[in-house]
Design a protein around this nucleic acid. Structure first.
Lengths: 224, 224
DNA sequence: CGCATGCTGTCGACTGATTGACGGCATGCG
DNA sequence: CGCATGCCGTCAATCAGTCGACAGCATGCG
């Protein structure tokens, strides 16, 4: 996921990114980036300095200071702004003269991430906008973080790793909790309830109740 | 000293290099470069691919295989040749579209070598304003020094080198201390506490507690 | 050597969050 | 309607993390 500043980029930039197959999000402030952060962090950022160089460079400085810094920064500058680059070498990884040839942007992005892509990808489980990063114990839904407790996380992980299947409460107890069934099947209900609450009203239906049987995550594929 | 291929570069290129203060030498073959090599090695190379792409790329491959490889390679390509870059990512460090603006060439060279100059200091680990100098065992936060003890430093180093990942106390004990876990998992807690104290109240959150799991450095899920 | 200082690991108490349980209520189904 | 099942509000027990304090140990210094 790329971050683009300012939050409504030029049509050319947006189109080129789309055509190149990058997923991206416009961001207005660095503070927002901490909040919108994808589970596996920001892949990179494109900062447009043409119209508002001060704002652009301030953004670059902020990007470098994020708790989890952006891995690569590409800045767009006009020919007249080339001189600005000299005292800001540390704030960007590559630059591109604007107006630009779409294929040059594409090539620069690709080259910038060339080294990154070889890096081992962290183990991320994903399903329908929901992402669980098993290494960092973080969960996000559509980019916004979910603040889950340990048990909620474990239960959700089990669901996400087995989408579409129905599990009885007893199975869930033994698989997620490790118990032998001991009477407290209601415990599962409660945790499902809390999970649904944290998923938000509109996505609560991701965990379906199958009456008299148990629960299922996602995918009633046939329903239209 | 820069190596320029082919050995008689265009007037524009030669003049821009001269005006930018670079000393350079035109070279026709990589074999020559071993012989003409300056005492401190080649600083970098500019390879012109516009007229003879095959020869240019062959030169790049050769440059990468020198006994003492060139530290940075900039290739000149035409707009029509951008596509050639994709399968040769490993052969260059930056590229420049020809015809070029002299100031862009100057800026790219400067930036390429800026990275080169800072890269060797890989004995410095940095993350979000926090800087650890592995050679001198010093740590600074935003310029002001942190007075860390040995164990605090080791722990912080481990965290900084593995940002975003969650580590259980047992893992930390075995990785940082070298112990086999033997009951004293609370030791980790205490050192984390002391680290947080020294990071100062406003940055203490850099080390996050993941309840029931362990600790994580950076990557705040600081949702407002 | 004797002492002071600082680092390291351990312990017990405190605190707040998590968790599982219960009873009442709503809803679906025959 | 009557029953079964699931959902919700609430609560107490438990647990994990944090904190303050302290003892053992190494190091530095007079």
């Amino acid at each position: 996921m790329l971050a683009i500043y300012p939050d409504s980029p030029s049509v050319d930039l947006a189109r080129t990114l789309d055509l190149s197959g990058y997923s991206w999000k416009g961001v207005a402030t660095a503070e927002l980036m901490n909040r919108l952060q994808p589970v596996d962090g920001w892949m990179g950022a494109v900062v447009c300095c043409e119209d508002d160089p001060e704002g652009g460079w301030a953004m670059c400085r902020a990007l470098r200071k994020l708790d989890r810094p952006v891995r690569r920064i590409l800045v767009l500058v006009t020919g007249a702004q080339i001189g600005d680059l000299e005292i800001r070498e540390n704030l960007f990884d590559d630059f591109l003269l604007s107006p630009f040839h779409p294929r040059e942007l594409e090539a620069r992005l690709r080259h910038m991430f060339y080294n990154e892509l070889t890096a081992p990808s962290s183990s991320v489980v994903e399903h329908a906008g929901l992402r669980l990063n098993l290494e960092t114990y973080q969960a996000t839904f559509g980019g916004s973080p979910l603040d889950l407790t340990y048990m909620e996380y474990e239960l959700l992980k089990y669901f996400v790793q087995n989408p579409g299947r129905v599990f009885s409460r007893e199975i869930l107890l033994s698989e997620v909790w490790g118990y032998e069934y001991f009477g407290g099947a209601r415990t599962v209900d409660v945790h499902v309830r809390r999970l649904r609450a944290k998923l938000g009203e509109e996505h609560a239906h991701l965990i379906e109740t199958v009456r008299s049987v148990g629960y299922r995550f996602g995918a009633s594929k046939w329903s239209g």
